[in-house]
Design a protein around this nucleic acid. Sequence first.
DNA 1: CGATGTCTTGAAGCAGTTCAACCAGGGTGG
DNA 2: CCACCCTGGTTGAACTGCTTCAAGACATCG
Lengths: 212, 212
Amino acid sequence: MTAADLTELNRFTSRKVIPTGAEVHGQGEPIQAYANILRGVIKLTKIMADGRQQIVGLQFAPHFIGRPFADESAITAEAATDMEICTVSKPALDRLMANNPDLEHKLYNQALTELDEARDWMLTLGRKTARERVASFLNLIASHFDTLNSDGICFDLPLTRQDMGDFLGLTIETVSRQMTRLRNDGIIKVAHSRCVTVPSRARLAKASGNHE
Amino acid sequence: MTAADLTELNRFTSRKVIPTGAEVHGQGEPIQAYANILRGVIKLTKIMADGRQQIVGLQFAPHFIGRPFADESAITAEAATDMEICTVSKPALDRLMANNPDLEHKLYNQALTELDEARDWMLTLGRKTARERVASFLNLIASHFDTLNSDGICFDLPLTRQDMGDFLGLTIETVSRQMTRLRNDGIIKVAHSRCVTVPSRARLAKASGNHE
DNA sequence: CGATGTCTTGAAGCAGTTCAACCAGGGTGG
DNA sequence: CCACCCTGGTTGAACTGCTTCAAGACATCG
């Protein structure tokens, strides 16, 4: 967004710090506000009546969260980590968007990116093996937290094993087993179960099925 | 779209009839044109290097096809049935969109709908059983071709069993087996493998896992 | 009619789930 | 300071739902 957009927006926004697990908005509830992520990771989940759960998207800073032009949300947005967000009341942003094609254009672009990501993930869910799925997830996270170290890329996983399972369409046990397999194969190094080092992005990408 | 939009568009469009299996544009190819579906069904697929395939979306008339603001397509768009489309050159529509926030707004809205649909399907791929997936697919088609009959809703499947498998993340054999199971359970009636009758949408929805 | 592509059915195999036990870290309270 | 528990993670063994492989049925078309 441009500085002007942001200044305009700031008049209707409020900054919030929210803890892991907090719900930003719930599935089936009316939408009252949008938000921007300043720090942390949001997970977007869908829940079936019998409790089965699927994470349908992860969003990182400085992403926009919300579903314009709908009264009710079909998904739950929940803090995967401790985070900081900047909320905007729905009517305020809707008004701003109506008068500002440029803003709408930017949000449109983000929606298209999310659509590309969602479709990428559909391939992962529909056609990849458990090992490839876990590698795909690690690869996704690596692409967002690329703290380069002497031994490669190093990062903390923003998700629990349960969340990883819900994102990958697997059980927690399968995720765990595939993590140890990837560790034994030397594709990742694991310090304390949440802290991962990737010596070679290329090898990880290969394990994820993205290249032949 | 408004009549004015359409008139403007028509100056840069050409109508085409294309047969089943024809590629509208291919994965990894530069995007040269958009299109509107007048009749028939488009399948959007992603293919892995080793040949595994996933259909990431189905589009029906009068949907718009294309990925604005990208030079290259990440997916293949292919005719699932014989169809009629109306193509628009990319530069022409891009120009029109830049000068016409209303048009962009409409396309934005469609992208958001596609995003909702993609995320719905992620739940299907990640967490539903084979039976539920096949029922979900039939339910999806039923919602687009609701020719009401004396014995319920009746329609022709626009996809082969292979395509259904690629859409559902299943093999062709599993799709076939679940179709016969749904038939034996009285949830559908099948005339000639492509022609299906649904006596009760409610029972089908229940089998798809959407209600408890 | 054979020939070809699409669909169904059966039997065996296997990847991922389920169930259960165990382990590690990190509060908390006695 | 240690026993306690509690949450999150790992590992093992048995099971099962889907896949794989193989054969046969059905329809359409030259």
